[in-house]
Every structure is written in C-alpha cells, then in structure tokens.
C-alpha cells in the first residue's frame, strides 16, 4: 500500500501520523467532559477564539501555541463573566464573544499580513507539521491526560452533580476554568491536524460515539480516545492517498464511525432496537399461540 510505503519513506508523513493520533486521543478524552456538561457550543467557541492569538504570535515571532492559549482562555473567562453578571444566558454569551474574537482574528491576520496561511489555520494541514509542532502536541497531550487522570474524581462529580460538589466545598468555578484551559490547549494542538473550523467535530463526534456504546464514564473515555485515534489514522490515509484536506477526511472518518455506532450499538443503536423489537414480537406471538 502506498500509504505504508509513504510512512516508511517520508519523515513528514510519520510526523503527521503521530500528531494526528495524539490529537485524536486527546480530543476524544476532553470531548467526553464537553458533551456531558452540555458544552459543545463552548468547544466550537474556544476553537474560533484562538485565531487572534495565532495571528499575534506570528507577528511577534513566537510559537502560535502561546498566543492561541492566551486568547482562548481570555474568551472563556469573558463568556463566563458576561453570563454570570447579567441575565444573558450562557449560549448567547458564547455567541457574542467567540464571533467577536474570530472577527478580530480575521482582521489581525489581514492587517499584520503575517505569513500565516489563513486557509491552513482554518482547515488544517497536517502534512506540513514541523518537528517543534510535534513536540508541542506531545506535551499538550501529556498535560491533558495527566490532568484528567489526577482530577478524574473532581471532573466526574462536577459534571454529574455540581451542586453536591459545591456543597462539600469543591471550587466548582475554578474547575470549570481549568477544563476550559485544557480545552483551549487541545484546540491549539488540533489546529494543524484538523484546523479551527473542524476541531469541534473531533471533540464531539468520537465522544458522542462512545456515549452510545457504554454507560460508564471511565469506559467512555477510553472508547472515545480509541475512536478519535482511529478516525485520525483512517482520515490521514485518505488525505494522503487522494490528496484531500486532512481535516475534512479525519472528520468524515469520525462521522462514519459515529453512524456505525448509531445503527448497530447494542444499547441505543437504531437497527439493533428494530431487530430486538421484531424478536420480542415473535416471541410474544409464539407465547400467545
């Protein structure tokens, strides 16, 4: 297969594969908490909010990681501030803040005439990953996985029952912003693989797929990571073989996996339910006879 040969032959393809697998895993893990807390829109918001940070970083000649995390976190805090201090609901506040940040980013990129290729930031270009990017992705991946491991208990209780968490004295808001920071870091790590526009799919689709397959959070996290990584590999294969944008192929691979689970999962799958209904009806009929 050309893909395997390419992997052995080309250094850039190895880097691309490694980064996208890490991104698939980390997005899958954080995505579980994002969907269980009903924060899918927040994931989309943060991914757009990193754009001005990326532009400023390029202008200053620093790695885009720093600027992106900065504007991502500032936007998350801004969203929280507006919704806590007025009658504006969270989703409205998200809509206001992230579009503003994104618009600012578009202007900054144009004005600063940075060498940044807007198209690549928006849609990803995993085949152009530099060694320093691989390192950043790896470090972010480790930070995120260790944080989730260490604070699993706290993330679980604040996701499931924030009131109980508050009553026994957990800093619920701080944990929220901590999760937002992790989310921003994951988004930044995903920029090159899938791009700003499609990051949210990597956060949500594998997690949602896993959600259909299990009813234990710990299992869901592992499944989601595995699904995310698989989507990355499959997507990269199609991207390389047919010369397509990596972000798009990876996301479609994740979507395909989702629909397989949607149709066949034992717990909630549509087809499975239909089959079961039929079986039950048959047994009922037999019993009636």
């Amino acid at each position: 297969m050309a893909f395997i040969e390419g992997l052995i032959q080309y250094d850039f393809l190895q880097k691309a594969l490694l980064t996208s697998i890490i991104v698939g895993i980390v997005c899958g893990v954080i995505g579980c908490f994002i969907i269980l807390r009903g924060m899918a829109l927040m994931g989309d918001a943060i991914s757009h909010a990193v754009l001005p940070g990326v532009a400023i970083s390029y202008a200053l000649g620093i790695n885009f990681f720093f600027g992106a995390v900065f504007t991502g976190v500032v936007t998350a805090i801004g969203i929280g501030f507006v919704s806590h201090n007025s009658r504006i609901k969270q989703d409205t506040s998200i809509g206001i803040m992230f579009t503003a940040a994104f618009a600012l980013g578009v202007i900054l990129i144009t004005v600063l005439e940075s060498s940044t290729d807007l198209y690549h930031i928006l849609f990803g270009n995993v085949l152009a990953v530099r060694p320093s990017d691989v390192w950043i992705t790896l470090i972010i991946g480790l930070i995120v996985l260790i944080s989730v491991y260490v604070f699993y208990k706290e993330l679980l209780v604040t996701s499931f029952d924030p009131t109980m968490a508050e009553v026994y004295g957990l800093p619920v808001r701080l944990i929220h912003y901590f999760l937002m920071t992790l989310l921003t870091m994951v988004t930044v790590a995903s920029l090159q693989t899938v791009g700003i526009v499609l990051v949210v799919a990597m956060l949500i689709t594998p997690a949602a797929t896993a959600y259909l397959l299990t009813d234990r959070l710990s299992v869901m996290i592992f499944l989601s990571a595995a699904i995310g990584a698989s989507a990355s590999v499959i997507g990269l294969y199609f991207s390389f073989t047919y010369n397509l944008a990596s972000g798009a192929t990876i996301v479609l691979a994740a979507t395909a996996l989702f629909f397989v689970a949607f149709l066949f999962s034992q717990k909630q799958g549509i087809l499975w339910k239909k089959l079961n209904d039929k079986k039950n009806r048959h047994t009922l009929q037999k019993e009636n006879i």
Partner: peptide
C-alpha cells in the same frame, strides 16, 4: 436536577 442519561452506574 439530574441528567439521568449520564453514563454512571
């Protein structure tokens, strides 16, 4: 007040 679909036993 609970999300009864939460994946927890």
């Amino acid at each position: 007040e609970f999300d009864w679909d939460f994946p927890i036993h």
